[in-house]
Design a protein around this nucleic acid. Structure first.
Lengths: 316, 316
DNA sequence: CAATTTACGACAGATTCTGTCGGGAATGCC
DNA sequence: GGCATTCCCGACAGAATCTGTCGTAAATTG
């Protein structure tokens, strides 16, 4: 065989695959004379390929360490975003990703040029992100499985702890995974309850993918669905009050807090589920508007108590 | 120049660097005839290098996608974390990073094996993150400059819009950048005011690095500092009340909301800055504990009003 | 010091490379 | 359908590189 181009590329290939290789080994592999091998080495060196060589006993040729992996071509901003993004995972309750984020950062650092490695280090050393106190920790594995099931349109089954502590087994056709207000939610059709349901992923355990597939409802908008359902997530009380406030203003004030709004005369009807009434009552008071309680009856009692406390505080 | 090995490697190099390249361009670059270029292409194909070619208008040579860059060795979890992290940037007010995150995702996709590319796509297609309504948008450029200045211990100067709307120019020795409660803060020594200061990055414009360097205070703990200062950030009122609640419980309830706590007899002294008193008054009421107002005087009036409103709501 | 490995110039015969020429296929646009 | 543009390919003869052999040398290790 007499093919110089092929041989040159073969030498390069062998050098990338082996830690070290002797001239004799290359000669045998290429079926050429040792002198010819030496010439190929010189050719590669001429071509700026960093071949290193050592003489004497144990002597051999090597490629300069790291040469085998070329750089990943990211911009400075992209590198910054990747690094900061890994940090921001704590903000969505996924601090458990820490080992993976550390690993990813190290590996990225290995394939990026020095300048971009600097950006990674800047985020690492300088920037801090504090998750809010309402952020709930969620299993990384659980989220990843759920996301995969959604993508592959595969049913899932899991144990679910509802808000009152009861445990049940569910089988679900998962439609979407979404993070809001510090919690991860899984939305889908619950075959166990025969209705669409919203599950908090921090209450899900033993989530497994089933073999069965399903067809997702067409035009399903997860954000919209959750925005509508979230006010009524399982709670001890269903609150229903009227407030003397135009619906546009009410929307602005209440919708972000998962309180459903609906026009009602010249005011607004507010509805939501809550486990405790003090917070919602206090919040309504802070608006400084007239309020009419429709339900629950306990809410009137709560207001009576707040009134007493407020009078006392105002006195002293 | 007559050097076939060099030419073969040059063709390969150009193909890796360019999306597509015509025979004419290669011929010009290599200073050879078009026919020779065609032969080099055939040689590379013979050597199993996946060169693809198209004829006619817009015809050119390309390397098969993905061939140009070897795989980045990430685990599935790491790939998921990287992708989800980019999504989570919206949770810290950095939606403006969107072009960079898109670019980073595409580039990662190019260097990852198909299975991991699948993980990237899963996050892209399936997972949603909704930032809370209190999250404030912040300039990416501003944050990156600030972070760089901190790392290099370089002074910065910028225009600052304080909470009451006043504009001032500041020169600062930046110590830390930190995200909390939906906002980015820059902590440092303000040379203009001759004291440590905390700035909200969304109120900073025209931030530039200066040539001067500085020495950061030893053992500066940004988190600790911010936790202590945040309750008293510029506000219209400085609230000071006592609540009949043990300090441990008070810590649990109030510290997360940027309210400073301090033991006081068998209760707790609470202090914080606030622009409006209704919310803090309502929150205090919702604790159902006895309250004593130290300041401001207006807070007593606020409680009186809340009492009236609560009585009215309890009635009907 | 001996054995082992890399390093290199010179020479003549062997082999590849190159431009030119002529002919063809595929694609997109007017 | 015609035209312009791009890739595809065999044949030929002269130009250029490649190869093994030979002799000589440097560096390393035990």
């Amino acid at each position: 065989m007499y093919d110089p181009i092929l041989r040159a590329l073969t030498v390069l290939e062998i050098l990338q695959a082996r830690e070290a290789v002797t001239g004799a080994e290359l000669a045998e592999r290429l079926e050429v004379d040792l002198r010819t091998v030496q010439r190929y080495i010189v050719r590669l060196k001429d071509l700026k390929i960093p071949v290193e060589s050592s003489r004497g006993v144990g002597g051999a040729y090597r490629l300069r360490p790291g040469y085998r992996l070329p750089p990943l071509l990211l911009t400075n901003e992209e590198a910054f975003a990747l690094s900061l993004g890994l940090r921001a995972l704590r903000q969505v309750g996924l601090a458990a990703f820490a080992p993976a984020t550390q690993g990813a950062l190290e590996k990225l650092g290995r394939v990026l040029p020095a300048a971009l490695r600097e950006s990674l280090r800047t985020v690492e050393d300088v920037v801090a992100i504090e998750p809010g106190p309402w952020v709930v920790s969620t299993s990384v594995d659980c989220l990843m499985r759920a996301a995969t099931a959604i993508r592959k349109a595969r049913r899932v089954r899991f144990r679910y702890r509802s808000h009152d502590g009861g445990i049940s087994r569910r089988q679900v056709e998962p439609w979407a995974a979404l993070h809001a207000d510090g919690r991860w939610y899984l939305i889908g059709y619950c075959l166990t309850r025969k209705a669409p349901r919203t599950f908090r992923l921090d209450r899900v355990t033993e989530l497994e993918l089933c073999a069965e597939r399903f067809r997702r409802p067409a035009d399903f908008d997860a954000r919209q669905y959750l925005a509508e359902r979230l006010p009524f997530i399982q709670s001890d009380y269903q609150v229903d009050v009227w407030i003397d406030m135009p619906v546009e203003e009410a929307e602005r004030n209440f919708a972000p807090w998962r309180i459903a709004t609906e026009p009602d005369g010249d005011g607004t009807r507010l509805r939501c589920g809550r486990d405790r009434l003090e917070m919602i009552a206090a919040m309504l008071l802070s608006m400084g508007r007239r309020i009419v309680v429709h339900s629950p009856a306990e809410l009137r009692e709560t207001f009576r108590q707040l009134a007493g406390q407020a009078m006392e505080a105002a006195r002293e």
